[in-house]
Amino acid sequence: MNERPDTDPIEVKVVDPSQPDTAPETPAEEQVSTLRLVATLAVAGAVAGLLIVLVNLHTKPIIDEYRAEQLRLAVYEVLPGVARYRTLYRVDDALVAQVPEGAKASDFRQAYVGYDETGEMIGVATSRGESGFQDIVLVIFGFEPESGILLGMKVLESKETPGLGDKIFKDQVFVDQFFARPQTPLAAIKKGSGKGLPGEIDAITGATISSKVVVSIINNGIADWQGVLQQADLEQIVPEEAP
């Protein structure tokens, strides 16, 4: 420790004759008061908190914007032709435009109602997760609430086997099947064994489970939302806004 002669005071062990020799360490440690310990931690905590809050102030807008952008992109992808959308929250099977007082947005399932240039409603996008081969597969998809026609699908999160299950979002041929399907529910079938029915989706060879999960998410999702959406008067909840 010869590099720091300036800061390192020479430790002088003061031997108190009244203390037993057997525990020379204990008195030295007791010299540090509890107050000082607490103070040190408090200062450290305060500095840390300050630093974090400062950086957070700086990065939060960027992060939020990125998230919003990602969501926007996803909604635009699964609702082809959409120009703008509004977020609705599902509270007890009813749809509201505003989260109730004191509740967090993330506590409610959300639907994104998309409109085209002319203000005409194109469809509704929503996300849903189900257990896939490895872990949860999270999918966002858009559909027409009245007819149940599937407009588009995008996998948001998946840990499916790379090179196999991950084809559910990497294999464009597979993904393309989910755009503008006139009939739901869909059915995943083995490639080449189809009978030409409208709801058929060719499953990925070797990744039947993953393919079926995507199909199941969409089928269950539409079944789950269709009733709620059909009952609600979307126009009323989301009044037309000036473009």
Binding site: E29, V32, L37, L41, G45, A48, L51, I52, V55
Partner: peptide, 23 residues
């Protein structure tokens, strides 16, 4: 102080991890 050494280190490390995470 020696007694709060580890706790302080963890605090410092956690702070920087949070910063790295956010950035």
């Amino acid at each position: 102080p020696k007694e709060v050494r580890i706790s302080s280190y963890i605090l410092v490390i956690a702070t920087f991890v949070t910063l790295a995470d956010m950035m």
